[in-house]
Each structure stands twice: as structure tokens, then as C-alpha cells.
Simulated scan of single mutants.
Amino acid sequence: MSEAPELSESEAFAAEHALGVLSSAERRQAEARMASEPAFAALVEEWRERLTPMTQGISAVPAPHNLWLRIERSLGANDNAPIQRMVRFWRGATAGSLTLAAASLAAAVMLANRAPTVVQGPPAAGGSLLDASLVSQSGAPVPLFVAAYDPTRKALIVTSLVTPNNDPAHVHELWVIPADGKPRPLGILEPGKTKAIPMSEKLLPSLAAGSALAVSIEPPGGSPKVDAPTGPITAVGKLAKI
């Protein structure tokens, strides 16, 4: 029987990000790579799609109270290092080993059905760290753009995964649609490039978990309307806390 190919460092890192087992520092590094490297962003989305079915059909099993207490005592506040050590053994291993590690992690999450008490630090200025994957609205739901909001810089970092020069007669315009349903324009995106969009104090309340990001196809210069897209919507995604 032939062995499964070993994962590259980028593939393993993308898979760890999709599983949610990175430390906060590593997670920031992964989000930065997603914003600057379209190929890495695509890898993360591929692993998310690949790993999601593993949790389907798994019934929750209540953990004994004394078991959870032992786990809780072994963890430092806001420190997921023990869990990271448990799953990191598959970094650089075969794809088959990765599947086994992912299934084990899913089972562990099901057992931990009560959140531990942790020490929360002060919220970051400018809101929470958010991300979104904007998928195609025609045909297969393929990721076309990835976005991450950095509350420290108060900037939305958006990467276009669209092939450059595919439609030179039109441009892609980004919109945020908060709970009130009124679109706010955020700027023009260049195919295949990353753009950091500073958020004004007026726009900051619009960037919240649950708000939608949408990209419309517009004539050069953007939508003739300042408060609504005029062309078709090509991609949509919702912001979520990281």
C-alpha cells in the first residue's frame, strides 16, 4: 500500500488554522499570510471545507464532572498550549495522519461541553479581530475574496483571489452591510491583490460579527450611487470573530 504524501509546511499551517488550534500569535500570523498570500488563503478554505464533514454525525457525549475539573486545573488561564501539544504531532505527517488528528480533536471538543472560566484581558481598541470569506454567488461557492479586520490598526485587509485582467471593462467594489441593511462603500479591489482599507470612526460600528461584506461588479470608478451597488453582486461573506 502506498503512503500518503507528506504535507508541506504551508499546508500543515493552513490546516492548523482551519482546525482552530493555533495560539493567538500564530493565528495573527496566519491571518496576515491569508491577507498577503492568495495561495495560502485558498489552502485554508480548502481545509475548512475538507474538515467540516468530520464533525457531522458525531453525537455529543457528556464528560464526567471530575474529568473536566482535572482538565481545567491543568490549563493556564487563556492558554491552550496543552491542546496544541496534543494535536501538533501531525505537523509534517501524512494526510492520513491529519485526518485522524482532526477526528480526535472533534471528539475532544464534543467532550468539553462546558467552557472553562478564563481571565479576559481588556478588549482591543477599535473592536474585535474579525474575518470573512466572500464566496461566489453564481455556480459553485468558491472563495473569491478573504478579509480580516485588524482592530489595532483599525484597518480591513482584503485579498482578491480573482485572476487579474479577467474583465478589464469593470471593477470590483467592496461594501459592508451591517444590521440595518444599508450598504456602505469601502473601496475598489484590484484582482489578485491585497488592499488595507483604513476604517473611519463613522464606519467602525458597521464592522461587527454578523455584518456582511459584499463585492459588486461596477463600471470603472465604482458605483454611480454612493449608497448602493448598481451592478451584480459577485461575492458575499459574513464577518465572524476570530
Rank of each mutant, 00 (worst) to 15 (best):
S2I: 13
E3D: 14
A4L: 15
E9R: 13
S10I: 04
A12W: 14
A12N: 14
F13L: 11
F13C: 04
A14M: 08
A14F: 05
A15D: 09
L19A: 15
S23T: 15
S23G: 15
A25P: 06
R27W: 04
Q29D: 15
S36F: 13
P38G: 14
P38V: 07
P38Y: 10
P38F: 03
A39M: 12
F40I: 10
A41M: 09
V44F: 06
W47A: 06
W47T: 01
T52N: 11
G57C: 02
G57V: 01
I58F: 05
I58Q: 06
V61Q: 05
P62R: 02
L67H: 04
L67T: 04
L69N: 12
R70F: 12
E72W: 07
R73P: 11
R73E: 15
S74Y: 09
N78R: 12
A81P: 00
V87N: 09
W90C: 11
G92F: 00
A93M: 10
A93H: 06
A95V: 07
L98W: 05
L98I: 05
T99N: 08
A102V: 02
L105R: 03
A106S: 09
A107R: 04
A108E: 08
V109F: 05
P116K: 08
P122R: 15
P123D: 09
P123K: 06
G126A: 08
G126F: 05
G126L: 06
S128K: 11
L129P: 08
D131Y: 07
D131G: 08
S133G: 12
S133H: 11
L134Q: 02
V135W: 00
Q137C: 11
S138G: 10
G139W: 03
A140S: 09
A140K: 05
V142Q: 12
P143E: 07
F145Y: 09
F145M: 01
V146Q: 01
A148M: 03
Y149W: 03
D150F: 03
D150S: 07
P151Q: 08
P151D: 10
P151R: 07
K154E: 13
I157T: 01
I157H: 03
V158Q: 02
V158D: 01
V158A: 03
T159K: 04
V162E: 04
T163K: 10
D167F: 14
P168K: 13
A169I: 04
H170I: 08
W175S: 03
P178C: 13
D180M: 07
G181S: 13
G181Y: 01
K182I: 12
R184E: 11
G187H: 02
L189M: 09
E190N: 08
P191S: 14
G192C: 14
G192M: 10
K193M: 10
K193V: 05
P198F: 10
K202E: 15
L203Q: 07
L203N: 07
A208N: 06
A208Y: 00
S211K: 01
L213T: 00
V215R: 00
V215M: 03
E218N: 01
E218V: 00
G221S: 06
G221E: 06
G222M: 00
D227I: 06
P229M: 05
T230Q: 14
T230R: 09
T230F: 14
T230I: 05
G231T: 02
P232I: 06
T234V: 12
K238I: 05
